[in-house]
Every structure is written in structure tokens, then in C-alpha cells.
Simulated scan of single mutants.
Amino acid sequence: MGRGYNLLFILVTFLVLVAAVAAQGNSGSSRGGGQRPRVGFYGNSCRNVESIVASVVRQHVQSNPANAPGILRMHFHDCFVRGCDGSVLIAGNNTERTAGPNRSLRGFEAIEEAKTRLEAACPGIVSCADILTLAARDAVVLTGGQSWRVPLGRLDGRISQASDVILPGPNDAVDKQKRDFAAKTLNTLDLVTLVGGHTIGTAGCGLVRGRFFNFNGTGQPDPSIDPTFVPLVQARCPQAGDASARVDLDEGSAGRFDTSFLSKVRSNRVVLQSDLVLWNDPETRAIIERLLGLRRPSLRFGAEFGNSMVKMSLIEVKTGSDGEIRRVCSAIN
């Protein structure tokens, strides 16, 4: 009787342990074994994660529309430096946030608020990297863009250094842009499509003024710019004006996520040199034409943008023992 009881006890204990392991695996809280992000990762462990993030992003975009392009840009800057690990969110001296290209980033408060709400709903479950990835998608949707399914399950990085921030620049040639994107496993279609995200947002006058007043030291605007566009930008970015003032990347349509920006690349009415040169390269020009429906087979910009965002969101993600789930997004645990 005693021996049979012991065997039954051992069997029951074993089954309980198996069930616990299975539940942990389905909950989405486990990052063991180098598991890659996937759609539905959080399962029942934090089933409202997407609605909570979407609600917070909506509030912050409604209160300040500039948060939409700000969050989208922040996600790009995060993924291109040490991968999509939320390292751009960490505050402090000499962190990524302090680097020149990141000083104009905005939307940090939305990510922090979403984290606070998620910690209340499901503590220790959702990473800041996942919150930022979801928020970027939600920012696009709120400005009229197409939604996409977001793979989740990233961990947060523990390193954030200003010296690591090396990003594609506003004056880069097409070949350099292609190399930079290829280094992050992104192809030329991804390059053109993601640059199409400039349909929302602004650029600092200090970055663009040279092209409109003194291109290559000539004392004249860049001759490749549509001459009717030059005085519009000069008025918004006077030569002796504030370098930190902002000018729309998609003049007349900066708040709507659409193909308007790509049309302006075609007509040489864009403020960044790195955008304008995409029309001069046969490969990137052909992609723009396909995204605009001017060349067959045509491409649907909204769908392609979602596909490229998913690819970008999987750059060098942290899993297993490579990272952590931060308690607050602005500091490592």
C-alpha cells in the first residue's frame, strides 16, 4: 500500500511539473532557448498587451501629432544600433539618447506610460523593445497607414552607448544607403519602402539648409531641386534662422501616411539629399515607380511597408540570456 502510494505521488508530481513547464512555455514569459519573436507570443500571460499600447499611443498622438513620426523614427534608430532591443530608450550620460542623431527623438513618454500600464496589468512580462515595436505600428495606423501583425518576444538590451550610434545620414549616396541596409539584412526594396515612411514627420533646418542656399559651396540651391519648391523651404528655414526649427518631409501631406512622399521624390520636391537621390538610381527609381503604380508589376505601399517593418524589427533581437525585461524603459534593471 505504501509503495503504491509513493508511485502515485511521484506520478502526480511529475504530471504537475510537466503542466507547469507547458504553461510557462505558452504564457510568453519564457525567453529560454533563444526563441525568436512570433505573433501571439504573450498568449494568455498578457493578452491585452496590444490594446494597452495602442490606447496609450493614441492618447499621445492626439495630444501631440508629432509623436507619431517621432515613435516611428525612434524604432528605426533603435533597430539600426545594436538591434531592436530598446537600448535607445535608456536615459543617462553617454547613452544612445544623447547622441546627435537622437537628440531630436520624441515619444519617450508614450513608451514609458505604456510600460507603466503593462507592469500594472502583467508585471515583468512585456519588454520595452516589444512596446516600442508595437507603438511604431500603431503610430502608422493612427496616421492612416495599413496595419500589420507584429511578432513579439524580444528582450531588452543592457547596453546603450552614444558611440555606437552610427546611422544612415541625410546626405548619403544611394550606394551607401544600400550597403547600410544590406548590413542589417534589408534589401533595396526594404530601403525604398522604409524611406517612404518619411511621408510623416519633419527634418531639422540645420540638416537641409545647405542644399537650399549654398549647395556644395556654390552659393546657390541644389539645381536638381524643383525650383518652385526652393522658396517654400527657404521661407521655413531662413539662412540665419534657428537650425533646430523643423520643416515637413512631405510638404502638404506630413500628417498622412500615404504615397505622397514618393510622388515628391519623383518630382524633386523633397528636403533631404538622401531621399532625392533615390530617383537618380535605376534600381531605386524602378521600385518607386512600382510603389506608385507606374510600372508593372505594381507594389502596394502599405503592405510592403508592413513587410519591411517586420524584417527591420527582427534585426539582432535579444533572446535567451542575451537580455532582460526592464522594470522601467529608461533604465536597465
Rank of each mutant, 00 (worst) to 15 (best):
F14T: 12
S147P: 08
V328A: 06
N94I: 06
V174W: 05
S29R: 15
P231T: 12
C84D: 01
R106N: 15
D130G: 07
L186I: 02
G100T: 14
G4T: 12
P65D: 08
T218M: 14
D156Y: 06
G241H: 07
A286P: 04
G306I: 10
S163Q: 11
R47K: 10
V247W: 06
S30M: 09
F80N: 02
E289Y: 12
F41L: 02
C84T: 02
N102T: 05
G196L: 00
V49K: 02
R31A: 15
L132G: 01
L207T: 12
D138A: 05
V270K: 13
E112N: 14
R179K: 13
V39I: 12
N307H: 12
V165D: 01
E113D: 15
D190K: 03
C84N: 03
D322T: 01
I325C: 04
L249D: 10
Q161S: 07
Q24P: 08
Q177W: 11
A135I: 00
R97I: 11
S30I: 08
R285F: 02
D258Y: 07
R3K: 00
G25H: 15
S224N: 13
V270D: 11
D190Y: 03
T133S: 04
F305W: 04
R97F: 10
F108Q: 13
L292Q: 01
N26D: 15
R154N: 04
G169A: 09
N268Q: 14
C46M: 06
E96S: 11
N216S: 13
T193Y: 03
F181M: 09
V310H: 02
